[in-house]
Each structure stands twice: as C-alpha cells, then as structure tokens.
Amino acid sequence: MISDFTYLKPGSAKEALKMLAEHQDDGKIICGGQSLLIIMRQGLVTPEYVIDIKKLKDLNYMTFDPKDGLKMGATTTHRTIEKSAMVKEKYPVLVEMEEKLASIQVRNWGTIGGNLAHADAAGDPAPVLMSMGGSVKVASASGERVISLDDFYTDLFETAMNHDEMIVEVIVPPRPAKSATKYQKFNLLDSDQGIVAVAATITLNGGGVCKDARIVLGNAASTTIRAKEAEKVLIGAKLDDAVFQKAGEAAAAECQPVADIHASEEYRRHLISILTKRMAKAAWEQAKISG
C-alpha cells in the first residue's frame, strides 16, 4: 500500500526545483513513475511530497547539432527516443537499446531522466549512454552542473546528485568518425532487464587500430561500471578475435557481480566475458564501415 503523500504539480522546471529545495529528502520527484511506483507500493519508499514533473513541457525536448551532439530533456519518453528518425540516424544503438527496454507500455510513459535517476544497475540506458561518453545536466534551485555518467553512479540506487538536485537534461556527445557503439543484454525474456549487459564503443584510427574503447557493464556490480581493464586491452591494439577474447576475460575479472536466483556470480562473470567479446567485435565491425 502506498503511504500518503502531498502531491505537488509544478508548472515549470524552475518551480519544481524550488519545491525540491524546500522539501529536500522528504520530497521525491516523480516523472513516468514506472520504477518509483513499484517500490512505493511495496512500502520501501515513503516520500512526504511527490513532485510531478511528467507534464513539464520545458523538460520535454530533443535537439541535435553536430558540434554539441544530442540533448534530451529529462521528461523525454523512451518511446520518443525509440521512434525518432534523427536518433536512428545519428545514434542507432539508442534505438536498438530502447526497443528492448521493457514493454511498449513502459516505454510510452517512462522517461529517460527518470530511468537514469533511479540508478538501477540493471537499467538499459545507462551503459549505452556511458559508453558513448554521455553526461547529465542536473539542476537545483541554486544552479546547474553537468556530471559525466562515469561519475554519476555512486552505489546501488544512489547517484552523485544532492537531495535538492534533479536531472534536467541528458547529453550525448557527437559520434566521432570511425566509431560505433553496440549494446546487448543477456536476459531470459525479451522484455526483461539484463541479468548482465554490456555496451561497447570502439573508435578506430585511420589505420584500423583501436584508438579508443569504452566498455560499460550493466548489472555486474552495484552500479553501472566501466570495464577499464578490458578497455586497456583494446586501446592501441590491432583488433582481432584473440584481442576481443582477452578483453572479455579482463572484463569478467574486474567486474563485481553478485549472485541471485537468476545467475551465480561465476555465471555472471562468464556472461560478461562472452558479451564483452561479442559487443566489442560488433562495434569494431560497424566502426570499420562507418564514416
């Protein structure tokens, strides 16, 4: 049973931040609510004030320019991203990721800002965005700051945001030349979260050598994490199956998964190694042919 709360409906982002400043830890932002309402119903979260930003037009936008990349307002729904022709052209992996995120109903109502702020290590967007070097702009009544997703997640369900801050924008830098990102999760049902997930971005130099690599693991630790050892294996290497294999092994060694009923720790590491190998290779193959 959800515990009683006072419902607040701000008319603008600014007003929302004012409310948040006022109520701090007792207030909770709701947007799509697709994750929040579940835990509220279980009685795990009992905010006194719920600040609804779902309908805020000033946070619902998507823009792209070749210099700054993609900017999405926090209340942009998953479905909007999935259906955007622009996103499909510039960041096809985002569309692929969204198509696999839960079900249409959830994507219709759930938002990108809400998903990232919920900080579930098994969430889909975080690994992909992190792998592409994405960041979030968070705001409070006293100002704004941009936090790289690399630094955003501090612990299970915890972020670097203060109690008076909320995500207002998601930023994805422009895709470099000869670069591609691939994402896959391992799940039992199509609509499930990943038992583990891997996003890989590979950027090649002119000679086909790996100039940069960003490997991000989902649900392989208490937060979404970079697999930096795996990246080291890849960066500077002439890529081939043996290198991908090694990168997979490195990622499996450095991740910190926990066991649950769906997979043991050992099996999770095994899956991380397989998916890392596969995604790095898939990204490499696409990077070779991309402009």
Binding site: L188, L189, D190, S191, D192, I261, H262
Partner: peptide
C-alpha cells in the same frame, strides 16, 4: 526451461512476475 521456484530456508525467492519467468508473446 523458464518457470523456476527456488526456495531458501523455506522461502520462495521469486514471488512476483518480475522474477518468475513465463513465456510471453515474443518467446
């Protein structure tokens, strides 16, 4: 291949439709 009822100390570990897996349309 999906519907699994693990118990720990007599407690069902997946008493919800997130963790209890059933075939859905794509499967």
């Amino acid at each position: 291949y999906l519907e699994y009822m693990p118990y720990e100390d007599g407690k069902l570990m997946n008493p919800n439709l997130v963790d209890y897996k059933m075939i859905r349309a794509p499967e």
